[in-house]
Design a protein around this nucleic acid. Structure first.
Length: 646
RNA sequence: GCCAGCAUAGCUCAGUUGGUCAGAGCAGCUGAUUUGUAAUCAGCAGGCCGUGGGUUCGAAUCCCUCUGCUGGCUCCA
């Protein structure tokens, strides 16, 4: 007999070889039906794997991440089985579960696969799932495994097996499909009720560009049809918020084949919105002691040789710009830091001046592979809300605090409530990889950790993720529908001060090396605006939105009064337009609602006589009558409150 | 860059096996209407069917090139 301890600390006695599934059955049949896997002594196991010693057992269902993982991994096997039946002779790479579903990389040999084939595969999967195939776990020796896949002619599996140690190799068998797999799996395919194969894509074998490209099929499965439907609704919602669609609809930005891919063109409304963001940040930064600087869009090749970027990026960047004079070579600037270093070098500095903070909305150009480009989130020309802080090692902590103040203020003003922070430090085992002195690294890493602790930040520490030149802190926001986006960043740099020989004179009258901090609260204006659009679904905060209000005259008779109101609103600093088309009020309201304009001012005979407006709020409806001054003050105070500038 | 797919009017899309197939809705323009909280009516105008080439008596439709767009290419049996 062995003891099985359940999460509530109750202990039950069973014969040796009992399975988690049996334990579940003893609790209730309903639970047993829903068990996908089990955590046995903190290791995820098949619910059907015999337990041979005293153990703690936690039953995993669809509500557990590990339960979902087992389900999706099993779904990958199910898909492979279906594909092997439909396309005999194909070879399999790997088929793991992922954050949202699963995929399998497959070498389809001579078969041509496109999305049209997915339906066929889905049907076959459904058919196999209904057979309630049981997943069987088998221990095999390395030789056996090699022989099996040798015969099958699957060189991908052979490669994987060769990297494994004998004695640790297991097969999983379900229906006609046997796969090299460490598991765990669900008890049977019967729990897979809803299947959706989502896309076909190419993926290099083991992510290596130099190796063969396999066909990757993505899919997701659910234990209930209803859950699949909900998932599809969420995808639809994400589609509606796509910044590329909304950017077009709201006339914010566009792209042109003639101008070139990855080079966004900002339309008037988008440019105004962006300008408002920039002005806001400039105001905040000015208060925080930043000095504006401006640098050109190109730099001599020697600048980048000094900075080290030439050696690193020279080959995979835009080609150099040459001049009529021999030997002159320029590069489009891929970052602003080298320019800012030279600004620092323009004159000697005393320790009394530090920290020095140079800020610039600097437009940079980077050659991204064409397939990497995506709307405004991945472009070839973009503007960073960049700044570089030059300070002493002892000032790092204060400077981090100052930057975090700015970032939090911005996120609040833009209604990003859910922020995760990632702190990237050195890999403690490979300290030789990093440039800069041990003392300085310790100081900066400690400073960052202290800041996070002092402020009670929701931070995750990643060792080994630091850049070779310094540790960093990244800000990741969750948007309105739960997607994560990396935005702002703060990075310590021990490299460029060295390369540019940056110095300041200390109290001891000796030269010292300053520390450089790169920081960008938005990241880039392009990416930030994209994330903002998707976050608010185009319903921008009142202080940012291009059109705050629209005047809707009941008929052409009241256009004159409307224009008068427009002039008054303008004086009050409200961004408004007028819809003086010969349309019915219902039509004008509908159009304004669709354009997501926050305030609609209906004016007709009554309003003209009383010298006021009927106010309608977007998504809410009629608010009643207000004078121009009253409503302007309401809007302006709302704006002021949101911007939180003191 | 690579794999898969896509490219028809400003936008969203129809166009069956190559032969009155160049269309619709919205937007735009003109006119009528003078409108009270989510679509008034009528008319007009809009496109070398992404580019270049090929097959054919004949190509938006079939083949190739290029350009651009979409999804994917770090989730490790």
């Amino acid at each position: 007999m062995i003891d099985i301890t359940l999460p509530d600390n109750s202990v039950k006695q069973y014969d040796e070889g009992v399975t988690a599934l049996k334990v579940a059955q003893d609790i209730s049949e309903g639970l047993a039906r829903n068990v996908l896997a089990a955590k046995v002594n903190d290791e995820v196991w098949d619910a059907t794997r015999p337990i041979t010693e005293n153990a703690s057992v936690q039953l995993l269902t669809w509500n557990d991440i590990d339960g979902k993982a087992a389900m999706w991994h099993s779904s990958a096997h199910l898909m492979a089985e279906a594909i092997e039946i439909l396309y005999p002779g194909v070879k399999f790479g790997i088929g793991p579960d992922i954050e949202n579903g699963f995929y399998y990389d497959i070498d389809f040999m001579d078969y041509e696969i496109s999305e049209k084939d997915l339906v066929k595969i889905e049907k076959k999967m459904q058919e196999l799932a209904r057979q309630k195939q049981v997943f069987e776990r088998l221990d095999v020796s390395k030789d056996e495994a090699l022989a099996y896949f040798e015969e099958k002619g699957d060189e991908y599996k052979l490669e994987l097996i060769n990297e494994l140690e004998d004695g640790t190799i297991t097969y999983y068998k379900s229906g006609s499909f046997t796969d090299l797999c460490r598991g765990p799996h669900i008890p049977s395919t019967g729990v897979i009720k809803a299947i959706k194969l989502t896309k076909v894509a190419g993926a290099y074998w083991r992510g290596d560009e130099n190796r063969k490209q396999l066909t990757r099929i993505y899919g997701i499965t659910f234990p209930k049809k209803k859950e699949l439907d909900e998932y599809l609704v969420l995808l639809e919602e994400a589609k509606k918020r796509d910044h590329r669609l909304l950017g077009k609809e709201l006339e914010l930005f566009t792209f042109s084949q003639k101008v070139g891919q990855g080079l966004p063109l900002w339309l008037p409304k988008g440019a105004e919105l962006r300008e408002r963001l920039e002005t806001y940040l400039k105001t905040v930064q000015k208060k925080a002691g930043y000095a504006p600087v401006i640098s050109p869009h190109i730099g001599n090749v020697n600048l980048y040789k000094t900075s080290g970027h030439y050696q690193k990026y020279g080959e995979e960047s835009f080609r150099p710009i040459t001049t009529p004079v021999d030997g002159e070579e320029f590069f489009l600037k891929p970052m602003n830091c080298p320019h800012h270093c030279e600004i620092f070098n323009a004159k000697p500095h005393s320790y009394k001046e530090l920290p020095i903070r140079y800020a610039e909305f600097g437009t940079v150009y980077r050659y991204e592979q064409s397939g990497e480009l995506h709307g405004l989130t991945r472009v070839r020309g973009f503007t960073q809300d960049d700044a570089h802080i030059f300070c002493t090692p002892d000032q790092i902590k204060d400077e981090f605090n100052g930057v975090i103040d700015i970032i939090q203020q911005i996120f609040t003003a833009l209604d990003f409530k859910d922020v995760i922070i990632q702190i990237s430090l050195r890999d403690p085992d490979k300290k030789e990889k990093y440039i800069g002195s041990e003392e300085n690294w310790q100081k900066s890493e400690q400073a960052i950790m202290d800041v996070a602790a002092d402020r009670g930040l929701n931070a995750v520490v990643e060792y080994g993720e630091a850049a070779f030149y310094g540790p960093k802190m990244d800000f990741i926001v969750k948007d309105a529908i739960g997607r994560k986006w990396q935005l702002g960043t703060i990075q310590v740099d021990y490299n460029l001060p060295e390369r540019f020989d940056l110095t300041y004179i200390g109290a001891d009258n000796e030269k010292h090396r300053p520390v450089m901090i790169h920081r960008a609260p938005f990241g880039s204006m392009e990416r930030f605006v994209a994330v903002l659009i998707e976050h608010c679904g185009g319903n921008f905060p009142l202080w940012l939105i291009p059109e705050q209000a629209i005047i809707l005259p009941i008929s052409e008779k009241y256009n004159e009064y409307g224009k008068k109101v427009l002039a008054l609103l303008d004086q009050m600093g409200i961004r408004a337009t007028i819809d003086n088309r010969s349309e019915k009020t219902g039509r004008k309201i509908r159009d304004a609602e669709m354009k997501k304009i926050p305030f609609m001012f209906v004016v007709g005979e009554q309003e003209e006589i009383d010298n006021n407006l009927s106010v309608r709020k977007h998504g809410e409806g009629d608010l009643g009558k207000f004078t121009v001054e009253e409503i302007s003050n309401i809007i302006n105070s709302e704006v002021e409150k949101m911007m939180n500038l003191k």
